[in-house]
């Protein structure tokens, strides 16, 4: 069926893009210094409107308190009746860090947002001029979240310098619109969770 072929093409293109990015970023100089292109972390996420599972690299600043990453997410057909592919760009900031000993840390208050694109012939991200007054592109949505993170930084880093788990509670812009217009729609209706594991490189 044409739609399945298109979906497969989209997946193949996405995987090639990720592979190219990994090769580009993965270069380490002969003297052992990390390339500035090498990502600071890789993240594996469950839920959060980014797909059932999503994964991708990211960069961080200010001792990992500000983070920005890209990911590819997937909702398999056995869950969503159709394979759904989502590309995301996600940013977060930690508002404080608690040190629990030399290696453990806790970031109890984080905030951030992500831009998600559902890709494939079913979804629109760019609309023609004539339709912009009437439609929101259904393949584009923003995830706004608060989060908490707990992590462990290795004393003697090898391939990884640390690991962390993060739990997010958030919602998307379309649900915020429904919530702000109605008493009928409650916070319970629009909030959901995401869990992720983060690997510091």
């Amino acid at each position: 069926m044409p739609r399945d072929r298109s979906s497969n093409r989209t997946s193949a293109r996405t995987l090639r893009l990720i592979a190219f990015g990994a090769i580009l970023c993965g270069s380490i100089h002969a003297d052992g210094h990390r390339s500035p292109l090498l990502p600071d972390f890789a993240r594996l996420q469950f839920a959060g409107h980014a797909g059932m599972v999503s994964a991708g690299p990211g960069y961080s600043w200010w001792d990992h308190r500000i983070e920005s990453g890209l990911s590819y997410g997937w909702v398999p057909a056995f869950v969503g009746d159709r394979n759904i592919h989502i590309l995301s760009q996600k940013n977060s900031i930690s508002l404080g860090r608690l040190r629990l000993g030399p290696a453990f840390f806790l970031e109890p208050a984080m905030a951030g947002f992500a831009t998600h694109f559902s890709v494939g012939d079913k979804y629109e991200i760019l609309l023609p001029d004539s339709q912009r007054d009437y439609y929101w592109p259904d393949g584009l949505f923003f995830w706004i979240f608060g989060a908490a993170k707990a992590g462990y930084m290795f004393e003697k880093p090898t391939y990884l310098s640390g690991v962390a788990v993060m739990a997010e509670v958030g919602t998307i812009n379309q649900d915020i619109q429904a919530y702000t217009r109605n008493h009928y729609v409650t916070l319970d209706d629009i909030l959901s969770l995401a869990i992720s594991a983060q690997f510091y490189l």
Binding site: F46, A47, G48, H49, A50, G51, M52, G73, V75, V79, G80, D81, R82, I84, I86, H116, S118, K122, Y123, D138, G139, F141, V169, I172, Q174, D175, L187, D188, D189, I190, L191, S192, L193, A194
Partner: peptide, 13 residues
């Protein structure tokens, strides 16, 4: 309280 995990608004969930 909330529906804990959501994967995509554009699915058929």
């Amino acid at each position: 309280a909330c529906e804990p995990f959501r994967f995509s608004p554009t699915g058929l969930e």
